[in-house]
Design a protein around this nucleic acid. Structure first.
Length: 590
DNA sequence: GACTTGAGCGCG
DNA sequence: AAAGCGCGCTCAAGTC
C-alpha cells in the first residue's frame, strides 16, 4: 500500500481535456491528476494561454500526461518551448487495446466507437493559432473527442483492459512505447530534417540538367525521350502513359506485357537503355524534384509528417512529402548545421534477429551473433553465398514458395526449426482467417467480408474448381500477411523501444556548453533543437543531429538504447542487435 | 470538372 | 534478375 505521504503521493498520471466554459465557443482546458490507486483530483481549470506554463510546472514531478491525441496537443506545447517526458496517447492506445487478443474483454473499448478514428482523422491543417494564444484542439468530423470527461472515461476503460490482461507488462510496454513514438514524431516534425537545398539542387541539375521553366521538362529528359523515340522509329511515342508506351514498344517489335523496369530489362533493343534512364530520372523529378524543395523545405529544414501506428503492423507511415521514401540518391542533401554532425545508425537484419529472439531459436541467434547474420548462415554451411542467405531469409519471412527463394527456404527449416515453426504457425492461422499477435500483443486485423465470402463459397456443395482455387489463393495470400505480421510488427516494437529509450537518454545528456553548442542555422526553431535531438527515423534506422562535441556521447546513447530495447522486449535472450553507426556532416550510406 | 483506380517505383 | 511482406506518391485513364 502506498503511504499517505512522501513521493508516492505524486500523481502518476495527469489527464488533459477540454471543459465547456464561459461561453467561449472553443472551451477551456482542465487537468485531473490520478494517483497510483486510481484516485482522481478535482479538475484543475487552466486558461488555454496558461497551458504551457501549467504543463512545464507539473512536468517537474514527471507525471505521464494523458491526452486524446498527440498531434492535437503537443505541437502547441513545443511551439511554446515546453517538452514533456512521457504521455499516454488515448487514440493510439485505443487502437491497440481494442484489437488485442491479449485483452480478455474488449467489449467496453469496442463500444466506445468515437475513439475509433483512424490515424490523422480530422487533423488536416492545424488552425492558425492567434498570436500569444494557445488554442485547444478543435473537433473535426471523424476526430477523437478532446473533452476531459471523454478522456477520463476512455482512460478508465484502457486501464481496466490492461489490468485484466494475463501479462499486463507486455501490452503496458507496447502502449508506453507507442505513446513515446507519438512524442518523437511530433518533435521530429517540429525540428525538421536539416536539409541542404543547394546540394539537392546540385544533385538534380547534375542528373536532369538545369532547372527548367515552370511546366517545361528538363533538357536531359527531353534528350532521352528523343533517343527513345528514334530507336523505336516512332517520333510521336508517348513515354509518360503506360498504355501508350506499351503500344509503341510492341509495334517496335519489343514483346512485353507491361512497361515495368524489370520486364524491359530482359529485352535487347536500343530503345531500352535510354527508356530505363528516362523512367529513373522522371521519377526523381516528379517525386523529389524542384517542386518538392519548394513545397517542403524552408529555412534549411524539411518538415515531414509522420503517422505513428499508421501501418497495420505498427510501423509508422508518413503523409505528405514522402518522408519514408527519401531516395538514397538524395541522402547527401541531408546535412548537419555548421559545427554540428549527424549521428546515424541502422540495425543490420533487424527482422530475422527479432524472429530468432521471439522463437528462442538458439541456432539462428548464434548465426547472427556479433556479425552479419547472412554471412553467419554461409559460415554455418547452410547456404553457399551471402546473397543466397538473404534470399532464403526474406523468403522465409515473406512466405515465398517459388523461384530461388522457395528452393532455399527448406534449408532454413532444417537449420532453424524453432524460427520456422513460429512463422509457419502464423501463416497457418492466417490461412484459416485467424488472428495473430506480435510479441508485445498487437493483433492482426481479421480478413474482410469479401475474403470470408470467397472461402464460404468454395466450401459449398456446388463450388466450382475455379471457386476453390480462388479461395485457396486468397487463403495463402492472407497467410503470407499474418506470417509477416508477427515479424514486421515485433520489429516495429523493438524499433519503438529503441527510439523511446534514445529520446530519454538524449534529453538527459548534459546540456552542451556554449562552446560546443553553436546555435543551429534555424535559431528560431524549438528550444530542444539546441541540444542533440532526433531528426529522422525509418523503420530500422535513426538519425540524431548533435553538436560536434557531443557526437561520441550521442553515439554511446544510440548503442545503449539498442541494448536496452533488446533487454526490454526479450530479457536475457541471447540475441544481439548490432548497429551500423556513422558520424558525419552528411548522411551517407555505403 | 471532381473523384477514384491502377501502374509504376521510391523506401524498409 | 524478381519472387515473397508492408507502405506513399504521381500521373494518366476511367468513372461519375
Amino acid at each position: 500500500m502506498p503511504s499517505r505521504s512522501g513521493p508516492s503521493d505524486a500523481p502518476r498520471w495527469c489527464v488533459l481535456g477540454r471543459v465547456p466554459g464561459g461561453g467561449v465557443a472553443r472551451g477551456r482546458v482542465a487537468a485531473v491528476e490520478v494517483d497510483a490507486a486510481g484516485e482522481r483530483s478535482a479538475p484543475i481549470p487552466i486558461a488555454t494561454a496558461e497551458l504551457p506554463a501549467f504543463v512545464a510546472a507539473r512536468e517537474r514531478s514527471a507525471p505521464r500526461w494523458v491526452w486524446s491525441d498527440t498531434p492535437s496537443w503537443y505541437p502547441r506545447l513545443l511551439e511554446a518551448g515546453v517538452r514533456i517526458e512521457r504521455c499516454h496517447d488515448l487514440r493510439l492506445c485505443h487502437a491497440i487495446l481494442s484489437r488485442s487478443e491479449a485483452v480478455p474483454d474488449r467489449g467496453p473499448l469496442l463500444a466506445a466507437a468515437r475513439w475509433e478514428a483512424g490515424p490523422g482523422a480530422g487533423e488536416g491543417e492545424p488552425a492558425e493559432s492567434a498570436l500569444f494564444e494557445i488554442e485547444t484542439p478543435e473537433d473535426a468530423p471523424g476526430a477523437v473527442p478532446h473533452d476531459l470527461d471523454a478522456a477520463l472515461e476512455e482512460f478508465d476503460r484502457q486501464r481496466a483492459a490492461l489490468a485484466a490482461c494475463v501479462d499486463p507488462g507486455r501490452l503496458g510496454l507496447l502502449v508506453a512505447a507507442e505513446s513515446a513514438g507519438a512524442l518523437v514524431a511530433a518533435e521530429m516534425a517540429a525540428a525538421g530534417v536539416p536539409w541542404d537545398a543547394a546540394e539537392h539542387d546540385r544533385l538534380l541539375s547534375a542528373a536532369l540538367g538545369p532547372r527548367p521553366a515552370r511546366g517545361a521538362k528538363p533538357v536531359r529528359l527531353l534528350e532521352l525521350a528523343e533517343e527513345v523515340r528514334a530507336a523505336l522509329g516512332d517520333p510521336r511515342a508517348s513515354l509518360d502513359s503506360p498504355p501508350k508506351l506499351l503500344r509503341a514498344l510492341r509495334s517496335a517489335g519489343i514483346d512485353v506485357e507491361s512497361t515495368s523496369r524489370w520486364e524491359l530489362a530482359e529485352h535487347e533493343h536500343p530503345a531500352i537503355r535510354p527508356l530505363l534512364r528516362y523512367k529513373k530520372l522522371s521519377r526523381l523529378l516528379t517525386a523529389k524534384g524542384w517542386a518538392w524543395i519548394d513545397e517542403w523545405v524552408r529555412d534549411g529544414r524539411y518538415h515531414p509528417v509522420y503517422v505513428p501506428g499508421g501501418v497495420v503492423t505498427g510501423r509508422w507511415a508518413s503523409s505528405g512529402g514522402g518522408a519514408l521514401q527519401l531516395p538514397r540518391q538524395l541522402r547527401p542533401a541531408l546535412r548537419a548545421d555548421p559545427g554540428w554532425v549527424l549521428v546515424s545508425a541502422d540495425v543490420a537484419q533487424l527482422e530475422p534477429r527479432v524472429l530468432a529472439a521471439m522463437a528462442a531459436d538458439g541456432a539462428m541467434a548464434a548465426a547472427g551473433s556479433g556479425r552479419d547474420l547472412y554471412s553467419g548462415l554461409v559460415e554455418q554451411g547452410i547456404v553457399g553465398t551471402r546473397q543466397e542467405a538473404k534470399i532464403a531469409v526474406l523468403g522465409a519471412m515473406y512466405g515465398s514458395t517459388t523461384g530461388d527463394s522457395g528452393r532455399l527456404v527448406p534449408r532454413l527449416r532444417r537449420s532453424f526449426p524453432a524460427a520456422m515453426r513460429l512463422v509457419d504457425t502464423a501463416a497457418a492461422a492466417g490461412e484459416q482467417g485467424g488472428v495473430v499477435s506480435t510479441w508485445l500483443g498487437r493483433s492482426s486485423p481479421r480478413p474482410g467480408d469479401e475474403w470470408e465470402e470467397l472461402q464460404a463459397r468454395a466450401s459449398l456443395p456446388g463450388a466450382t474448381s475455379r471457386d476453390e482455387s480462388r479461395a485457396r489463393r486468397a487463403a495463402r495470400e492472407f497467410g503470407r500477411f499474418t506470417r509477416n505480421f508477427v515479424v514486421q510488427g515485433t520489429a516495429a516494437e523493438w524499433a519503438l523501444a529503441w527510439l523511446a529509450e534514445l529520446r530519454l537518454r538524449l534529453a538527459r545528456l548534459p546540456s552542451p556548453t556554449s562552446a560546443e553548442s553553436i546555435a543551429p542555422a534555424r535559431a528560431s526553431g524549438p528550444a530542444f533543437e539546441r541540444q542533440p535531438h532526433l531528426v529522422f527515423f525509418l523503420h530500422d534506422e535513426v538519425m540524431v543531429h548533435a553538436p560536434e562535441g557531443q557526437a561520441a556521447a550521442v553515439a554511446a546513447a544510440v548503442r545503449e538504447s539498442a541494448e536496452a530495447a533488446g533487454r526490454l522486449l526479450f530479457g536475457s535472450a541471447p540475441v544481439d542487435f548490432p548497429l551500423e553507426l556513422r558520424i558525419g556532416e552528411r548522411a551517407l550510406k555505403e
